[in-house]
Design a protein around this nucleic acid. Structure first.
Lengths: 185, 185
DNA sequence: GTCTATACCCGGATAGAC
DNA sequence: GTCTATCCGGGTATAGAC
């Protein structure tokens, strides 16, 4: 199943993307230079340009891979528990905290929609919409809440003593599908 | 009333901060170089260092000023309408959309708490806590929601057709103080 | 308080040899 | 496909003259 945009790249280019990701996750965005990527592969920076057009292409590949991973994570989470929105929220937070620099790279700018695999963005969104009972306003509000919580947590914006789990629960409860009488199926 | 941290700076330093703010708001963070600031003031970059220690000090001043403005905005909003949380949310969104680059400078990193005027952060937070009926979890969730909405809107993350006002209303309703029977006073 | 000159670092990217 | 050499741009910041 082709879920990663970097699969359209040559094998060598995929190695370069993989090296870039390691550097990004370990050293942050300031460490992600073409020179550093080349060094990790044991070559010189100019050689990279035989395989990748430019740095921006590399970043698009990283963003695309991250999006695909989030979509997969959402689908697993939604299928797992009896409270899809809570499961998705938990998965979202977990993924973001596990990949802070990649998460920021993905979120801190407009999506390069014209360079992503078609349907990728919708795939991630669909599970959230479903979990909010098909209400797009609630889905967007829930997305905003989750992103806000994650990014404020990453940026150490809350007081150290703050109970972030409680705040998460408060938000998830606010946007969850209203339980219907009887079965939800 | 001393609400702005840059009031502790010399008059010339405040002129520099003002120039920096104009550049930041008009050209974004990449345009905010010491050279550009100096040029706007009709001097050379090295001269700035007679008045300001370094660039980071300048950024702290910008952040501090922005925080003070937000706190003032919140206080006015909370006092104005009959639904404080909705008023604050509206003020928050309005301020952020009016100052996108400054907003990001303020939010995209940990707060330099040790370099801010004491009580400044709490002052902004207090109105939100009050508007959520004193529930800190709800206040944090509301903060996260508002920040998420604003930053996703700034980053053009929602579909162009999305009704963001509706999403805002959905979130504000979710975190607002539960109306008590009779009067709220 | 401003200047010139400059040190020192970094980055992305290209040309052309091998 | 990799290399060396290099271009060209940018940035913060300091030294020392005036």
């Amino acid at each position: 199943m082709a879920s990663s945009a970097s699969e359209a790249l040559t094998p060598r280019a995929r190695e370069i993307v993989a090296a870039a990701r390691l550097i990004l996750e370990q050293e942050g965005p300031d460490g992600l230079s073409m020179r550093a990527i080349a060094e990790r592969l044991g070559i010189r920076a100019p050689s990279l340009y035989k395989h990748v057009a430019d740095k921006e292409t590399l970043e698009v590949a990283l963003i695309s891979d991250g999006l695909a991973e989030i979509a997969e994570t959402f689908e697993s989470a939604a299928a797992a528990g009896d409270d899809p929105l809570a499961s998705i929220a938990c998965a979202y937070r977990g993924w973001a905290l596990a990949h802070p620099h990649l998460y920021r790279l993905m979120m801190d700018r407009p999506l390069p929609r014209d360079r992503l695999a078609p349907g990728l963005e919708d795939r991630a969104a669909a599970t959230v919409v479903a979990a909010t009972g098909g209400d797009p306003d609630a889905a967007r509000a829930a997305f905003a809440f989750a992103h806000g919580m994650v990014v404020l947590e990453l940026n150490e914006r809350f007081p150290p003593a703050a109970d972030l789990d409680a705040a998460w629960n408060r938000g998830v409860a606010a946007f969850g599908r209203r339980r219907e009488r009887g079965s939800g199926a």
